[in-house]
C-alpha cells in the first residue's frame, strides 16, 4: 500500500470531522467531542496504520481494530466511509431506524466492525482474547488495536484485562487511550481521578508511549514504536482535544454527549471548511 503524505491524512481527518458534524445534526443525538478529538487518530489508522481491505472487510490477514468506547463510533463510521467500506451517503442514516449505523456499533449489522460495543470497559479484554488466539496460532504479523476512552478506565474490567495482557506478554496488542480529560459528568479528574495514568499502566506491566493524539505524524511514529516492543503490551496515551476543530466544542465536557443544532452545525462546518478561518470555503 502506497503511503499517503501527512498533509493528505490531515485533509482526510478534516473531512471526517465534517462528516461527524453532518451525521450528528442529521441524527439529532449522539456524541460530538470524543469523535472530533479522535478524527486525526482514525485518519491515521484507516489510511496509514491498519493493514486492511475496505472491499474485503473479513480478509483473514487484516489487522483488528476494536472501538471499546462505542459511543465514539461516528468517527469510525466516517473513517470507514472515507476509506470505502460503504457509500458516504449512508452516513446520514446514523441512529435511524433500519440503519446499519446503529447508535452504538453492532458487529452483525455492518461488515468491518470487529465487535459490538458501547457498555464500557470490555474492549481491552476482547482485544486480549483475539491477541491470545493469534499467539496460540503463531500468527505474529497481525496487530490488534484497541481504542479506549479515558473515563472508561474507571471500569474494573479494564484493569482485569491490563493484568492479563501483561501476564501473557501480548506484544501484538496495542491499546490507544483517548486522553481527552472529559467524561459525561465533567472533567475526569473531578469525576474519578485516573492520574497518574502513565504510572498506572507501567505498574501493570505495559510499555507506555505518550503522544499528541491530534498530531498525525507523531501518532504514526508512536504506532511504529509500539510495534517494535516485544514481550509487553503497549499503551499509547494519546492526548487529544475534545471537540477538536470546532471552537465552541473544544475542551467543553458538556459536548461529551449531545448533537449540535442546525445553527451550531453551520458554524462548526464553516470553521472546519475554512480551517479555522485561514482559508476561504467554497461553500460560502
Amino acid at each position: 500500500m502506497q503511503k499517503l503524505p501527512i498533509e493528505r491524512l490531515q485533509e482526510i481527518a478534516n473531512d471526517i470531522r465534517e462528516d461527524i458534524i453532518d451525521m450528528l445534526v442529521e441524527a439529532g443525538s449522539g456524541h460530538g467531542a470524543g469523535p472530533l478529538g479522535l478524527a486525526d487518530i482514525f485518519s491515521a489508522l484507516y489510511f496509514d496504520i491498519l493493514n486492511n481491505d475496505p472491499k474485503n472487510p473479513d480478509w483473514p490477514e487484516r489487522d483488528i481494530l476494536l472501538l471499546s468506547n462505542g459511543h465514539c463510533v461516528p468517527v469510525r463510521y466516517a473513517a470507514m466511509a472515507e476509506a470505502g467500506y460503504f457509500p458516504k451517503n449512508e452516513l446520514k442514516t446514523l441512529r435511524k431506524f433500519g440503519s446499519r449505523l446503529q447508535g452504538h456499533p453492532e458487529r452483525l449489522r455492518l461488515p468491518g466492525l470487529e465487535s459490538t460495543s458501547g457498555p464500557l470497559g470490555c474492549g481491552l479484554s476482547q482485544g486480549c482474547g483475539i491477541a491470545l488466539a493469534h499467539k496460540m496460532d503463531k500468527v505474529n504479523h497481525r496487530w490488534v488495536y484497541v481504542v479506549m476512552g479515558d473515563g472508561e478506565t474507571d471500569e474494573g474490567n479494564v484493569w482485569e484485562a491490563a493484568m492479563l495482557a501483561s501476564k501473557y506478554k501480548l506484544s501484538n496488542l496495542i491499546a490507544i487511550l483517548d486522553r481527552n480529560d472529559i467524561q459525561i459528568d465533567g472533567p475526569t479528574e473531578q469525576v474519578m481521578p485516573i492520574e497518574d495514568v502513565r504510572a498506572k499502566w507501567r505498574s501493570f506491566g505495559w510499555h507506555v508511549i505518550e503522544v499528541d493524539g491530534n498530531n498525525i505524524e507523531s501518532f504514526i511514529d508512536a504506532c511504529s514504536m509500539a510495534k517494535a516492543v516485544t514481550e509487553q503490551p503497549v499503551m499509547i496515551i494519546a492526548y487529544t482535544v475534545p471537540g477538536k476543530g470546532v471552537d465552541f466544542m473544544e475542551y467543553d465536557f458538556h459536548w461529551h454527549s449531545g448533537a449540535p443544532n442546525p445553527k451550531q452545525a453551520k458554524e462548526a462546518l464553516n470553521e472546519l471548511r475554512t480551517l479555522g478561518g485561514r482559508i476561504r470555503s467554497e461553500h460560502q
Binding site: G121, S125, Q126, G127, G129, A131, A133, A161, M163
Partner: peptide, 16 residues
C-alpha cells in the same frame, strides 16, 4: 476476574 473471563472468551471466539 469473571468479567474478564467472558470478554476474553468473546475475543477468542472472534478470532475463530
Amino acid at each position: 476476574a469473571e468479567q474478564n473471563l467472558v470478554t476474553v472468551g468473546s475475543g477468542l471466539a472472534a478470532a475463530g
